[in-house]
């Protein structure tokens, strides 16, 4: 099964659970907090905000927050790709599809074919320069020391998302209520669904039915690149996932077209976090979405449970020899 299919199923299950909780009195909740009675997941940003707003540390919230934090450290930013409804929502309502990724995949397949016919490196028309020997060496090293072309825009540990996060927490501390929750696109998605349900099921029309989707649309389509530029929830997760080492994408350099000199960068162009699975720098931002695995024309990318850095280096060394 493709990873993207597994993700779709997971998110659908979550939405179904939320919708069921609208009809049946089970109180499983939404993605802000989901669980059974006292045992529940809690939104880490929401929890932080309540701590700052009330200056009380309710044991239940604190324990849930710590457990979620440990989960993010172990699993990385999985929430963003597997549970968050925002990226699929944006994709669903974007009618003009972006074809650049498909073009890149098509070009790589073409190059793969061409490489089969004529051995050696092939330069594709209109694409970037093929890698030099030096760049290839840096690629297999697993870390970008001699800035190759594909990692030119490397992500920093702190960026605009963390600024938004800081602002949200400061504002929360000053005004004494969870400020970001008001505009959280995850919350607004479920709030819109709930408003619709209250209208249909209870005849409770309200401005919320109009205001929430408008807020949501603003975030999705005006503040484009919400996830990597603005989302403070992603910012919390990215900070927590810095120590994450499990489920990091791994490139089999034997299979990878790029290390063979073919100018393929499909894994980079499909990555919504703008990462390169060849390069371990900034890899804590990986959401384990598996697009690089699904789309790699040479099936060179996998997401193993764990690969020691040392082992990875050894492997590439024997390959070089």
């Amino acid at each position: 099964m493709k990873i993207s299919v597994a993700r779709k199923i997971t998110l659908t299950l979550v939405v179904v659970v939320v919708l069921v909780s609208f009809f049946v009195n089970v109180g499983t909740g939404t993605l802000s907090s989901m669980g059974w009675e006292a045992i529940a997941y809690i939104c880490p940003l929401g929890a932080l905000e309540t701590f700052l707003a009330s200056w009380t540390f309710v044991p239940r919230a604190l324990i849930a927050f710590i457990l979620v934090a440990v989960g993010v450290i172990v699993l990385g930013k999985v929430f963003c790709a597997w549970l968050c409804p925002v990226p699929p929502l944006r994709k669903f309502f974007t009618f003009k599809k972006d074809t650049s990724v498909d073009d890149a995949i098509a070009a790589s397949h073409k190059a793969l074919k061409a490489a089969g016919a004529t051995e050696g490196a092939i330069a594709i028309e209109g694409a970037i320069e093929p890698l030099s020997a030096e760049e290839q060496a840096s690629l297999v090293g697993g870390s970008c020391k001699s800035g190759c072309s594909s990692c030119a825009t490397q992500r920093k540990k702190l960026d605009s998302r963390h600024l938004v996060l800081g602002g949200a927490l400061l504002s929360t501390a000053i005004f004494g209520f969870p400020v970001f929750c008001i505009v959280c696109p995850v919350g607004l998605t479920f709030a819109s669904l709930l408003a619709l349900w209250r209208l249909v099921g209870f005849n409770e029309p309200s401005w919320a039915l109009l205001v929430f989707p408008v807020f949501l649309a603003l975030e999705l389509f005006v503040l484009r690149k919400w996830c990597i530029k603005f989302c403070p929830l992603g910012a919390v997760m990215s900070l927590l996932s810095i120590p994450n080492r499990l489920f990091r994408p791994h490139v089999d350099t034997k299979k990878c077209l790029r290390t063979q000199g073919i100018d393929c960068a499909v894994c980079v162009s499909v990555c919504e976090e703008e990462l390169d699975p060849h390069c371990m720098d900034g890899m804590h931002e990986c959401t384990k979405c598996g697009l690089c695995v699904d789309k790699c024309p040479a099936h060179a990318v996998t997401i193993p449970l764990y690969i020691a850095k040392k082992k990875q280096l050894e492997k590439t060394k024997t390959l070089a020899e």
Partner: peptide
């Protein structure tokens, strides 16, 4: 108002 994160669980569970 400082601690409610609008998670909808209390509404959902009310028998």
């Amino acid at each position: 108002i400082a601690t409610c994160i609008k998670c909808d669980r209390c509404r959902g569970v009310c028998p």
